[in-house]
Every structure is written in structure tokens, then in C-alpha cells.
Design a protein around this nucleic acid. Structure first.
Lengths: 263, 263
DNA sequence: GTTTCTTATCGTTCTTCGGTGTTATCTTCT
DNA sequence: AGAAGATAACACCGAAGAACGATAAGAAAC
């Protein structure tokens, strides 16, 4: 798992993700180790490590770096962008079909939601509320889209805004739709790794009429620390085509509406 | 006034500002007029006009464009960035000296505040709250700075977030300092052109302990529609060095603390 | 229908800036 | 003091993308 992830990431971003994985795997390594392992100069390694530290993924000390808890590595944006991008595109395409002109849509800080932003071209008028900075930036250019930024405390790890201020901003709204994602899904519940995130997502769930959960199949076989909400809180759970039937059935058995996004 | 503003703007942005000024001056002009006046192709003119329309500065119709009320032109970001940049830099440098490590600072969506952002390098730790997107973007990179984004409805004209949601976000905070700017200043009051902006600025005034008003001398000889607040609400009014003494005296006579930012 | 204006599309140019290594300076540990 | 590691300060290279114009297709006026 330490080698060649692919995806549409810039070279340094990809390398940083690889370095992060390497560090997580080895627990702690020296800068020189990384120089050898990745064939770049010391300077570049340090720059990468600075960036990773800024994102909260590693801790630097004199002589090397050590890994932070895996959970924060997994919610690292660069890492997530790397993962299952084709699945996410499919999920986004499905989500796209649920949106009608004139609606208001809320998006959380997930890469699935970001994929959706690119597909919003010709739905107009439209109101979009999100706390995810890349999504915000992408939407500022769009005339005909009313953009509501959900402010809050900036998190470099997620590149989004969160915390109490964000939750409060969410409370003040009510949208037609919510598209969000989580770290892990059991047959009965959705889970997430970080508590502050849970705060915001719960608020979002309260603030939308129709709630849609977007998950690729990897999420169904994983677990995460914090229970976010029962799946019954969602109106639809959308999974990708590669999801094995035997993972879908338990969900349906528990009364969850599951839709499969075909590619 | 229609010719050669300078500044550190990209070429198209500068030209767009010039076109905007041209349109404001002439009330309404045809695309071809602009082609001649600026020596670029029709296509480029149209693209510029589209952008200006997106920002709410002009209105396009078949055969040409017409100007929106001057007020919105004057709050157009590109235009403001162009204006009095050296003065703004001086104001920012002065403001910089008022900030101590550990403080929390609120910035409004003014270009003066943006100039200040660049000077925040070595004050650490620091908390900054702002609704100005360029400032937010600039600050996301900074480790050691806690960034609180003030969300709200995106305005392309100002490139910032506003409206009720933003005002509410502001209410929920309380910072040590506030740096803001306005369109116009009389000996007794600060004024602004747009009502929604007033809403947010008033909230900011309520949410900070020490309030600092940054104005270049041009502001002192102007008027604007909406009364924002009495100058007594501000703890300090900072003006630039080029401000004539006879404009400062009336302020002081009314009990306002005026500081002059030397270049 | 004709003319005038506008928009879409494409390819070229140009600039900007991200990404990098090298060298030199500065820190910190021993 | 010396050595190893970290950071700062240039300078270079290349690629991504902005900027623009020419042309063609489309829409609206007349």
C-alpha cells in the first residue's frame, strides 16, 4: 500500500500523500530515509514534511518525523482525493440527477461532494451551501449560483471550516438537499473519525429536508470511532457499482433505501 | 480619471477597471466604442463586460452596456485595489503595530485589511476572523494562525461573504481588535454605500473590543449614502500622511482620536 | 431576409508560478 | 568547538493556464 497511488493529483501532492503513508507505516523516520526512498533532495523532503505537519498528519522533531494517529491521516485531503476517484465521480453523477433548478443544496467537506460541484454547470438557478473551501472557490466564479459559505474555524487537514461557529451557521439554514459522506458505514449506522466533524455533520442532518449519503464500497467494510447517526436518518444511501451485493443486502434488511450509482 | 491607473493588478483586471470607469463616466456605451478606446478585439471586450456584469458593475443589453449606480462601481474590488495602494500599505503598517501575539483580530472586506494580511507573518500565535475571500485564501496557508472564516452569501462585487448569515456569524464572536474601512467619513460619522454591507459592519463594531477605522485621505472628502456609525464608536481613526491638516482638525474637534500613518 | 450584434470554439502565444535543487547560514545537540 | 540537521535565500526550469484574437455559428433587431 505504500506504492504508486494514482489519480489526478499534482506531483508534489501525490508524493506527500505517499510520504504520509510511508510515515504512518513506519511510525517514525528520518528525513534522510525519505530522501533515499523518494529520490528527491533534502530540501524538498523538508518542505513536504512541513506541509504535512501543517495538515496535522505528522509531527516533526529534530532528526525526523513521527506519525500522528491514523485517523487524521485518513481524513487528510490529499489522501482522500487519491482514493476511489472513479467511484466518487459515479456517485456525483447520480447525485446530480436528484437536483432540480431552483433548489438549495448543502454539501459537506467531502471529496464526493467536490466531484458534484463540477457537474452543477447547467442547473440554474441554484443555491449551494458548503463549508468546503475547494468547493467554495470553485463556485465563486459561477454566476447564477447563489453561494452560501458556511464559515467556521479553518482546518488545514480537511481544507474546510468547522467547529461550533460552523455548526451554528448550519443551524440557521434549511436546504432542500444534503449530500454528504462519512468514513465508515455499518448496516445500521454511519461513523466518522473526528468528533468536531461529527458536530457539523449532525447539524447538517438537521438542516436539510432530504438527506443523501454518498459512500463508495470501501466505506462499507470499514469502521470508525464516532457514531454519527443511524442510517435511518438518511433518505437515500448511494453506493457505487462495485459494491458487492452481500454488503448491500444487510442495509436493505434494516429498511435503508439504497441506490446504486452505475458508471 | 479615465486613464492609466497603475498598481499591481493583472493586465485584464486593470483594463476591466478602466472599462468600468469609462462606462460609469459615459453612462452607456457600445462594445465597438470600447474596442476603439482600448485597442482590443470585440471578443475581449465582451469577455470583460461579462465579468463586470458578473460583479454587478454594469448591465449588458443588446448594443452596449450601461452603468449601474456609481456606488456599486466604487465598491468593485478591482477598482478599489487600484486606488491609493501606497496609502493603504501605510495604514496597514500602522495597524500592524497595534497587534500583539495571542490576540484575536477581525478584518472586514476592505483592501486596507487585505494589505494588513501580508504583514502578519511573524505575529504568532494569532486568531484572525474575516469575511473577505482573498484574505481567507491568503491565511489558509499560514500555520500558527487560527483562521475563522465568517461565512454568508457570496458577493462577486466584493469577493466577500455578507448578508444575515454573516452578521450572525459575527455576533457569535468577540475579538480584541477590529480593523475596517468605509466609503466615506464626515467629521462625525462613517458612511457606506450599501445597506447589506452596513449590516455586517455594524455587527463587527459590536463584536470587537478595540475598533480601528482605516481611511485614506480621499475618503474624508467624499460622501456616501448610508450612515454606518458615529466616529465615536471607533477607538482610533488612522489616516495616511497625505491627509491635509485641515481635514484632520474637525475630527479631533469632535473628540475623535486620529492617528497619522507615516509612510 | 438582411444586417448587426453576440456567443461559442479553437489554437496560439505568453506569462506566471509552482516545484525543485544548490549553496549558504543558522541551530542545536554532543 | 565541531558536526549534523534544519532553514533561509536565490535561481532555474517547465508546465499549466490565462489571455487573446480569428473565425464561424447563432440570435435578435429591423
Amino acid at each position: 500500500m505504500t506504492t504508486e497511488p494514482d489519480g489526478e493529483l499534482s506531483r508534489p501532492a501525490r508524493r506527500q500523500a505517499e510520504i504520509a503513508a510511508y510515515v504512518v507505516e513506519h511510525g517514525s523516520v528520518s528525513a534522510n530515509d525519505l530522501v533515499e526512498a523518494f529520490g528527491v533532495s533534502v530540501m524538498t523532503v523538508h518542505r513536504d514534511l512541513d506541509e504535512l505537519e501543517r495538515q496535522g498528519v505528522v509531527r516533526k522533531y529534530r532528526g525526523g518525523v513521527s506519525a500522528q494517529p491514523t485517523s487524521v491521516f485518513e481524513s487528510n485531503v490529499a489522501y482522500r482525493l487519491n482514493t476511489a476517484q472513479t467511484e466518487k465521480a459515479a456517485l456525483a453523477r447520480y447525485a446530480r440527477t436528484m437536483i432540480e433548478p431552483g433548489m438549495s443544496v448543502m454539501l459537506d467537506d467531502s471529496t464526493s461532494a467536490l466531484a458534484l460541484v463540477d457537474l452543477l454547470e447547467d442547473i440554474t438557478p441554484l443555491t449551494v451551501a458548503t463549508n468546503f473551501l475547494p468547493a467554495i472557490t470553485a463556485l465563486t466564479g459561477r454566476r447564477d449560483i447563489t453561494l452560501v459559505a458556511l464559515g467556521g474555524i479553518y482546518s488545514a487537514t480537511h481544507d474546510s471550516f468547522g467547529g461550533m461557529p460552523c455548526a451554528e451557521a448550519v443551524e440557521a439554514l434549511h436546504t432542500d438537499l444534503l449530500f454528504c459522506s462519512v468514513s465508515a458505514v455499518s448496516p445500521t449506522h454511519a461513523f466518522h473519525q473526528e468528533e468536531e466533524i461529527v458536530l457539523v455533520k449532525r447539524a447538517m442532518l438537521r438542516a436539510a429536508r432530504t438527506k443523501v449519503l454518498l459512500v463508495d464500497h470501501a466505506k462499507l467494510q470499514r469502521t470508525a470511532l464516532h457514531r454519527l447517526a443511524p442510517l435511518s436518518d438518511f433518505d437515500v444511501v448511494v453506493v457505487d457499482e462495485k459494491t458487492p451485493e452481500e454488503l448491500i443486502r444487510p442495509l436493505r434488511d434494516h429498511g435503508v433505501t439504497v441506490e446504486v450509482a452505475t458508471f
